[in-house]
Simulated assay, not measured.
Amino acid sequence: MMELEPDKTPLILIVDDIPKNLQLLGTTLRDEGYKIAALNDPLQVLSSVRNLKPDLILLDVMMPEKDGFEVCKELKGDPDLAEIPVIFLTAKAEQENINFGLELGGADYVTKPFNSSELLARVETHVSLKMAKDQLRKQNNQLEDLIATRDRLYAVIGHDLRGPLNGITGLTRILLEDFEKSEPDPKIGKFISMIHQSSKDVWMLLSDLLNWARMQSGELMVQKEEVSSVKLINNVLELMEYQLTKKDMNINLKYEQEHPIFVDERYIATILRNILSNAIKFSEPGADIDISLQEGEAAYTIAVTDYGIGMDEETIDSLFSSKFHPRNKNEINKNGSGFGLMLSHQLAKIHNCKLEVVSKLGEGTTITLTIPVPSPEDAKTLKHAKAHY
């Protein structure tokens, strides 16, 4: 048998109505290191294959109620199961029957009585082909993800970075012109404030890009500690003060009592900042944003609710995907890369947290961050840290 990773041991499903054949085949294949599942009822094959997803099916042709050809036809008619190779077990060696089975989608056949060497050779050949195809399919999917992420990064650099930097350049030019006139203008203070904010925007975006790059290379280190949830939110709101003031928006922070959370403050702050940024971006000027904190037995939740343009189901389903960025034609925000929410989703997963989105078009959106309570191991680490504080 070919060498495989420990968790990649191939599973072979044997279907035969004669128990003695099941036992003989099972013993022969198990001795070679394969995992085995067996069925003697052809009517149960389809449901069992959907559940087990075997790497190969050994299928007897002559069975009561439904023969192997009928079963094979059903398997090949299901797109989710059609790629699983089927080797027929048959006492009929006539070329006509063999051709019929292969035309139905069978990969090969073995005649009874079995020759162990021949059986094992055919099984290994088709298992190897199946595993190679699966690996190739996995690599293709990974490549597609990398290409999509690369394209997204190009879009971020090309648009999101260029916008703030152009703002800095333009405002600096205006400041220089005013200073050259030697006539101080009250607007200069406003322009300096705008430059400062644009600089912060660039800095936050570059931080997000750096975090994303570290995640892709596996270098992102999470260092959890006990953090005040209210203090964390207020720190994020301080960063968002300019955007909130610019749109005359109000934050309603709701909680019964302050509770600590066990997280890496840097990355949870990044998640909340991106959620709030989108809430502001997709809301009308003067609107409210609600932030509610709740503590449960197994998790804490931080929910951010806006009353803006909302999203349809298709947009929600693709919100955290690197392959598709939903564009909204509403003038509230017709630009943007959508990079922030994709990054936030990945940061949440690294923390064993969860982001959930509930939205209705035209009514608003709620994004909830669920943070699990400290595990026994985390609690022990926290207790140890406090003891040495």
Rank of each mutant, 00 (worst) to 15 (best):
N335W: 07
Y300V: 13
L29V: 11
P10S: 00
I275G: 02
L89D: 12
Q243A: 13
Q197L: 04
L143C: 11
N166M: 09
I174P: 05
M311P: 07
S228D: 14
K224Y: 04
G106E: 01
T9A: 15
K354S: 10
L56E: 05
A298N: 08
D317I: 06
N51M: 12
Y154W: 09
F320W: 09
L59E: 04
Q257D: 14
L143T: 13
E32L: 01
G308N: 06
D41T: 06
N21D: 08
E258R: 05
N235A: 14
N328C: 07
S344D: 01
D201W: 08
L244Q: 05
V222N: 00
M194Y: 09
M221N: 07
I275V: 15
E331V: 13
L129R: 03
K73V: 10
K349V: 04
M194V: 06
E226P: 00
I302M: 14
M204Y: 13
N140W: 05
I271P: 11
N21G: 09
L237C: 09
S344C: 04
K386P: 03
E5G: 12
E177M: 14
I268N: 11
L22D: 03
G163M: 10
L146H: 01
V61T: 03
L176W: 06
T301Q: 13
L206Y: 06
L43W: 02
H259D: 06
D145V: 01
M62H: 15
V123D: 00
N234Y: 10
T305W: 12
K334V: 04
S337G: 06
I18V: 14
G167A: 04
N166G: 07
D264L: 02
Y255A: 01
I12V: 14
A213F: 10
S48A: 08
I291E: 03
V127C: 02
K200S: 12
I12F: 03
N335V: 12
N352D: 10
S322A: 08
P164K: 01
R327H: 06
G296A: 11
L22Y: 01
L343V: 02
E83R: 14
S229N: 13
P85G: 04
F69K: 02
V357H: 08
H259G: 08
N115F: 11
E225S: 05
S117C: 07
D306N: 15
